[in-house]
Amino acid sequence: MARLSLAGVSKEFGSVAAVSPLSLDITDGELVCLLGPSGSGKSTLLRMIGGFEMPTAGQVLIDGQDVAHVRPNRRPTAMVFQSHALWTHMNVFENVAFGLKLRKLPAAQVHEKVMTALELVGLNGYEKRSPRQLSGGQQQRVAIARCLVLEPKILLMDEPFASLDQHLRERLREEVRQIQRKLGITTLFVTHAQDEALALADRIVVMSMGAIEQVGTPDEIYANPSTPFVAGFIGTMNMLKGIAQAGHVSAAGFRVKADIADGEATLAVRPEDFVLTDGGLAVKVRRVVNLGPYLLAEAEGGDGSAITVHIDKNRVVREGDILAIAPQRYAVYREGAAPYRSA
C-alpha cells in the first residue's frame, strides 16, 4: 500500500497539452475518482501513473520515489482497462497467473494465489473457461483479479465499467468498493459518470481540459462546487446568468444577497434548494415529471430562462400552474473572484 504524489505532471501530444502541469497527493488506502468529460485528460493522467505515457514534465512519486520514466512492468501499479484487455488465447487461470509466472513463482504458490484472487472477485470455478465464454461483467472481474493477484501498491481503473449495463455497473462498483476496503489498496478510478464517482470515492478529482477543477469528498463537491464547471457537471444545477450590484445578485427575476464585486455573475441553485414561499418569484410550470420520490417541475423564470425545481410529491402541480419560489441555498460565481455561498 502506498502514497502517491503527482508533482507538476504535464503531458503534451505534439503541441496539444493533454494535461497541464498539476499536482495531487493521494494517501495510503484511499480511493480517488478522476471525474470529467471525455477529453478532460483524466485517462492520460491515469496512463502516466501506470507508465503507459511518459509525462512531458513533472514527477510521479510512489512512496516518495520518482517513477515518471519507469516502464509499466517495473512499477508497483496495476491497471484495469476499459476494454478489460483479457488475453483471448489464454483461459481465465492463465490470464490471472501470467504475471506470477513471469516472476518465476513456484507452481503451487501460483495456483494458490490465483485461486485466492478468483475467489475474491467471485469467480471460483471459472478458471478453465476461455475469456470469450464469459459475460462482460465476468470478464471485468477476471481483469480485476489479474491485477490484484500481483498485490500492487496502487490499483488503477480506467473506466472499467463503461461497457456494462447500468444494473451490472452498480453491482460491480459495490464489489470493487468492498474489495478495496478489505485490501486497503490505494486506488485511482477514472470515470465520466458522476453517480459512479459519488458512490465510490473517498475523494473526487474533477478535471476539465487537462486541469484539475476541484478536489474534495463527494459531499464537498456536491454541496460546494468551487467553479461554475463543477457546479454544472455534478448533479443538476440551475445556472442563472445575472448581474451583481451593491451586495445583491439579480438573475431570472430573483434578487438575493451576495457579498461579491459588481458585474456579471451566475446564480447557481440546486433544484432541491428552492422553497415554495408566498414572497417568492412567480414562475409558470411548463412540464412536470414524476421521478418517484419527488416531482420535477420545469418552470419559466421572470426573464424566460428555464428553472428546474424539485417539489414534494404530495403536492398537486400541473402544467400551467404558477408557483412562488425562492432559493434557500445558493452560490454566486463571478469570474476572477471566489464564489459567494449563502449561509
Binding site: A85, W87, F98, G99, R103
Partner: peptide, 23 residues
C-alpha cells in the same frame, strides 16, 4: 492485436520481449 492487451501484459511485469512472445 489490442494495445490494451499488450499494456496489460506490460503492467503485470512483462518486458517488451515477453509481451511480444506471450501476447
Amino acid at each position: 492485436v489490442s494495445r490494451n492487451m499488450e499494456e496489460a501484459a506490460a503492467d503485470v511485469g512483462a518486458t517488451p520481449l515477453q509481451v511480444f512472445w506471450h501476447v
